[in-house]
Design a binder for these strands. Structure first.
Length: 513
RNA sequence: GGCCCCUUCGCCAAGCGGCUAAGGCAGCGGAUUGCAAAUCCGCCAUCCCCGGUUCGAAUCCGGGAGGGGCCUCCA
């Protein structure tokens, strides 16, 4: 592969040139959600980022296999399901559906497989047995634990010393464990809990083992990329790493990628900061004072994704997520999303302009060839790709996208494209620039189709269009008669209804916010 | 207590030792317009503080202040 891509690796804490295990192929595994509650904003960060990573790797010529797992059996589900009068599997099914729908709206198209933990029980048991045979794990009264003291380099991902895990004293207490850092590979079932037969009795897998099993079955012993939220680094990824390498005896992951967490200014902080106030649970406070804090189900400050989609286009959310480098935290706020939307509007207006100039929808522009077509807009393409090569710096790339947009508008102004005064060469140069915009925005997974308009039934839609045309015609007559007062009044009153009129040489366009 | 990380314009944000510190939002001035909207042009930061390394630092090192994450379930 001929490219300059460098990827930050959490394990080595530095950017490294990207090389794959198998030339031309990339295996990528990202930890998905435990499906016991509807997805919140934080759950969308990883999928959007790694979907974009896949787009870029594919663009570079790699054949990428991208797996996101679903944890569909876990203590959380066992507690939550009865509350909703559902079985564990029914709850899992319901929440998974919500998750998948959200991803689809966000144009996350790259996931090849979404394996469920419960579908890999035999593989999980096989690995656990192997670990016991090799002396890395021990059964204890129906449970099976991984013995961290047997693994020489345990803790290498997060700089954790097994000896010190004791000192923290925040480790799950259990008489069955030999040392505090040991973690469960298999948990015995209490009556009524979901359970599978195993050599150690009825039970279910521990949290970390499913990822070792599924990644190995679907992608092999050594993964090119393993991703997930920063909060999964320890203990989840550390433990996955320990299990997999102990079992397979080879490197588990070449590039560990961790995305920053979604944060929110919640009231929780405010309360905590108060001199002697009680630490009471809080609802999902939008806005609020105090410092930002990560969004999570356990803190109860999460913003449910489906709620966001009632107020914002999915594309706005995707753009918002990609406008910041993936390793940094992102602070969510309604204002911020609104700001991003205003920025996106300038692209949408350009697309309208494009239709007037080229008589073609941006969305209908042909899929661009992946090469440098030259022309005066080529430098933007180059700079965009340089940003992507630098550890998928989508924030920098978004900046270039805006610059390209601006350059295209400038060009169209200068050459008077709308007035039809441009030469054939000018039009060609312009369209080459549009092709770049198409190519680059496609890499980010945005502008691939027109944003959904608010739904209205066909008849009333037709009526609105008709009435608008009527008002525009009446206003045009008034203006023709130099009756600007009347014309302005029509525009002002429409403005109060959220409708903006734009007078152009060729007629008047209208837009509803 | 231990381990990571962050601090750049009013807000968001790129920057990873050397071009005038990207870009977005907001704001101001101008072109265009009958007036607007949209678009374009121009203006708008020496980088948390203090030391040090270097010919040269927002970028490296040390100290300080503030913030975040993990060490318990978490994307």
């Amino acid at each position: 592969m001929d490219h300059n891509l460098r990827v930050y690796n959490t394990l080595t804490k530095q950017k490294e040139p990207f090389k794959t295990v198998v030339p031309g192929k990339v295996s990528m595994y990202v930890c998905g959600p435990t499906v016991y509650k509807p997805s919140h904003l934080g759950h969308m960060v990883g999928p959007v980022i790694f979907d974009t990573v896949k787009r870029y790797l594919t663009y570079l010529g790699y054949d990428v296999k991208f797996v996101v797992n679903i944890t569909d059996v876990d203590d959380k589900l066992i507690v939550e399901a009865p509350k909703q009068g559902l079985s564990v599997s029914e709850l899992a099914e319901r929440v998974t559906k919500d998750y998948v729908e959200n991803l689809k709206k966000l144009n996350v198209t790259g996931i090849d497989e979404m394996p469920r933990a419960t579908h890999y029980i035999p593989a999980i048991i096989e690995i656990i047995q192997g670990l016991i045979d090799k002396g890395y794990a021990y059964p204890a009264a129906g449970d099976v634990y991984f013995d961290v003291t047997k693994d020489d380099d345990y803790g290498k991902l997060c700089n954790r010393d097994p000896e010190q895990l004791e000192a923290g004293a925040r480790i799950e207490v259990s008489d069955k464990k030999r040392s505090p850092g040991d973690f469960a590979l298999w948990k015995s079932a209490k009556p009524g809990e979901p359970a599978w037969d195993s050599p150690w009795g009825k039970g279910r897998p521990g949290w970390h083992i499913e990822c070792s099993a599924m990644s190995m079955k679907l992608l092999g012993k050594t993964l090119d990329i393993h991703g997930g939220g920063l909060d999964l680094q320890f203990p989840h990824h550390e433990n996955e790493l320990a299990q997999s390498e102990s079992y397979n005896g080879c490197t588990f992951v070449n590039y560990w990628m961790h995305n920053g967490l979604m944060r929110i200014h919640s009231q929780a902080t405010k309360i905590k900061d108060a001199p002697s106030g009680p630490l009471s649970p809080v609802g999902s406070g939008i806005g609020g004072e105090g410092q930002p804090q990560k969004m999570s189900k356990s803190l109860g400050n999460e913003i449910v994704v489906s709620e966001i989609f009632k107020r914002h286009q999915p594309e706005t959310l995707r753009f918002f997520l990609l406008a910041t480098h993936y390793r940094r935290p992102i602070d969510y706020s309604e204002e911020r999303l609104e700001e991003v939307r205003r920025g996106l509007d300038s692209f949408y207006r350009f697309f309208e302009r494009l239709e007037r100039v080229a008589k073609r929808s941006f969305y209908a522009f042909p899929s661009p060839p992946r090469d440098d077509g030259g022309g005066e807009f080529a430098e933007f393409r180059k700079r965009f790709l340089e940003h992507m090569d630098d550890d998928f710096n989508t924030g920098g790339a978004v900046g270039v996208l805006y610059e390209l947009l601006s350059a295209l508008n400038r060009f169209a102004d200068l050459k008077q494209l709308e007035a039809g005064k441009a030469t054939g060469d000018d039009v060609k140069a312009f369209e080459q620039g549009v092709v770049y915009l198409k190519e680059l925005s496609g890499l980010l997974g945005v502008f691939s189709s027109a944003p959904e308009k608010p739904k209205a039934d066909h008849a009333s839609q037709k009526l609105v269009v008709g009435l608008m045309q009527l008002l525009i015609d009446l206003r045009a007559e008034a203006r023709k008669a130099k009756n600007f007062a009347l014309g302005d009044q029509i525009r002002k009153r429409l403005g109060e209804l959220g409708v903006t009129l734009e007078d152009r040489p060729g007629g008047t366009d209208w837009r509803k916010d």
